[in-house]
Design a protein around this nucleic acid. Structure first.
Lengths: 250, 250
DNA sequence: TGAATACGTTATGTATACAATAGCGCAGGA
DNA sequence: TCCTGCGCTATTGTATACATAACGTATTCA
């Protein structure tokens, strides 16, 4: 084993996967670029076997693409790929909300959702919102969506939503952060928050169709959000995640 | 390498993955059962590295579950897991149909769909339908759904639908075959075929909402189909795929 | 007699060695 | 000068050896 430094607290495979995902999402590896196993071995500190396992997982996750002649490359996404992914995720979340409403949810289970809601309300009170508050917003928003998904009590659906979230749009921080300087930004967040409020209400009142509809509308808002961000490319240096978008004309 | 037989026509990893999936779907490996790497090495003929890669892929595919202490086991599904998966897939297919309708599809692209439709019509003409005809139906139906998915022109959506189809309900042969002896079977197939006809019509007329709605209804039909099959367990010996369902009460 | 601990066996996680293929460059001939 | 073919190199795919952790069993002590 020589002098290789080994961190035994987590498995090498997981370590390599996290490291590589970081490299991809941070833009160290550009879209279309081929990932060299040897290079990955050096940057991650794991050996080739766990690195290869990590590569396979990242491919399944949708961040990498297998090259027919062997090896993997960083996947490149068009703007439409990403907006489709957002709508796709919204559709699944809509289903989750409907399941939650139809199957019934106890008041106790809704508690954490409401706490999230209140915390976000608090953040949005400042106008204009600070970068730090934005950062908290992103975390809380992700938490809200995760909790909502859980309410569906449907493991296959939860799993599928997780996978859909693995796509780059799942790091919404990029889009939101990009717009912190835009006038429309705050307005969009406020509308989104209203959606959150409505979906909880619909679930409480067991109105499945309404719960589903509002989540789909929520996704359409996110698509508008994305378009807005992309029309204001000057802010995009804040967006490492968006590095995944093809530079091509699409 | 010794005397190990190596088939160089396909990669060992793919070979192992196919072999293992077969074993799972055919019921050779029962739900909840731990998969031994060593045993898999013997049955697949590949060595441990490709076997492990195959296991990782099958886990991502949803057929296996990682055991915290290490290794993998065959995932077990409840009846609700499967019906949820069907509805989930239907929801995604609905989105695909809507995309197709909204984005427009040329008559030439619809041609293969219509051929499928006609071929299925031909099969359903026999009453009662033979086992062989059922088998053809299953193939054609899968083809129809795959073609429809393609029409969305959305790679992320197509990808996600593929993954949703990897779940056991994706081998619809089981459910359908099981009912070949049931009186309601043929009726269900005929209704399903009507759905196929409507979705094509909706796409041709660019009615996105209608296209989406009919695919979701189609999925609900499939759920009823599943329930029906499960209520008539006597026919289930035809169903290796259903071996995946937990024997538990759930 | 039962429970707990220690040891051994077995299986997984990791590392590395070996094999094969694909891509690239150079050289030679047309 | 360009095209083609051969060979080398670099990188992936596969196999296996080694390390480590978990589980089961047996033995001993209470």
């Amino acid at each position: 084993m020589a002098e290789r430094e080994v961190d035994r607290s987590v498995s090498q495979t997981v370590k390599a996967q996290l490291a590589l995902r970081d490299q991809i999402l941070s833009g160290s590896l550009r879209p279309g670029e081929r990932i060299s196993e040897l290079q990955a071995v050096e940057t991650t500190g794991a050996s080739r076997t766990p690195v290869r396992m990590a590569l396979v997982r990242l491919e399944e996750e949708g961040l990498l693409e297998a090259i027919p002649s062997g090896g993997f490359m960083v996947k490149a996404f068009s703007e439409r790929d990403i907006s489709d992914s957002i709508e796709l995720r919204g559709t699944l979340e809509g289903l989750a909300a409907r399941f939650a409403a139809e199957r019934g949810v106890s008041a106790r289970e809704l508690e954490p959702l409401k706490e999230c809601l209140a915390a976000i309300d608090e953040l949005l009170r400042q106008v204009p919102i600070s970068i730090e508050a934005f950062s908290s917003y992103v975390t809380l928003n992700a938490r809200f969506h995760a909790l909502l998904t859980e309410l569906s009590r449907s493991p296959p659906l939860i799993r599928q939503i997780d996978r859909a979230s693995a796509l780059p749009f799942a790091s919404p921080s990029g889009f939101v952060m990009a717009q912190s300087a835009l006038p429309e930004a705050q307005q969009i967040l406020i509308i989104g928050q209203e959606h959150h409020r409505v979906v909880i209400d619909a679930i409480e009142n067991r109105e499945g169709a309404r719960a589903e509809a509002v989540m789909r509308e929520h996704a359409r808002l996110a698509v508008r959000n994305l378009r807005l961000a992309l029309r204001n490319r000057t802010h995009l240096d804040l967006l490492p995640a968006l590095a995944l978008i093809k530079t091509a004309t699409d």
